[in-house]
Amino acid sequence: MDLVDVLGRLAAKDAGGYQPGSPRATEPTALAALALLAHGREAEARPLLDWLASFQSGDGGIGIWNEQPTPGWPTGWAILAWTAAEQSAIADANDARARQRAIDYILSIKGSRIEWIEHSGHDTTIIGWPWVDGTHSWLEPTAMNVLALKHAGLGDHPRTREGVRLLQDRLLSTGGCNYGNTVVFRQQLKPQLEPTGLCLVALAGEPDASGRVAKSIDYLQRELTASTATISLCYGLLGLAAQGHPPAMADAWLTAACRRTLTRDPSTYKLALVALAALGTACPLIHMSAPLEQAT
């Protein structure tokens, strides 16, 4: 895999969009910063980290891109990038301040509590994070924020623990998960690779009393191939790595995905995920050198 090319593209001035040529957005920019930091190209991460801070709202949240300061669901990604920066040679007090404000923001956001809905298989009373403030808790924003809080030294915070409980509750009994529904009208829904991978990263180190994490690992091992779409492949591989089961073919699959991505859709979003997945268990989404001092 041509990681030099990939990292060079992540460091380019016009990098940061969901699609090639699209405006810089929080999630791809934070992932690119994480990738550059983890691959030792710290100076090139600095402009991306500064951009994230420049875009932070008064309440500490960070929207999806410049013209759209809400919703603030990507804020967890920025926390992860700033946390990684604090453990690097380019640590900066501004990063720490921005990170603290962002943590305060995500701790202020809760999924709306709704009583048990008839025909729904998951526990609707567990509170995690919504995509959009004022709506229900969903799996991916909860996984993002659990991950951010754990890396920020808040793994024992009640919100983190409840978020973990939500993720465990939303795993399908046969393994894997989707956007966050399990059973509807007595029928179990289908799993999807990308949320399953992200969920397994967030649940790394958590006990698996239900056995659903093990079944989710089986699901990813069964489904991932060299032709899996790039984002799903990267999250799937990260999930397996986080759970201690990196596949032997991971590098070959990533090389194939990287080639396809560079040819068809060299977006920062996808290339950053490729660069992160290529790190395996050393990926900063899985492992940071040491937990920071508890932030709050």
């Binding site: 999806i64 919504p130 004022g134 709506t135």
Partner: peptide, 14 residues
């Protein structure tokens, strides 16, 4: 757009 309304587009459901 999911980026503004989520996956699923829960704002609409509400």
């Amino acid at each position: 757009p999911g980026c503004k309304y989520g996956w699923p587009k829960n704002v609409l459901h509400h």
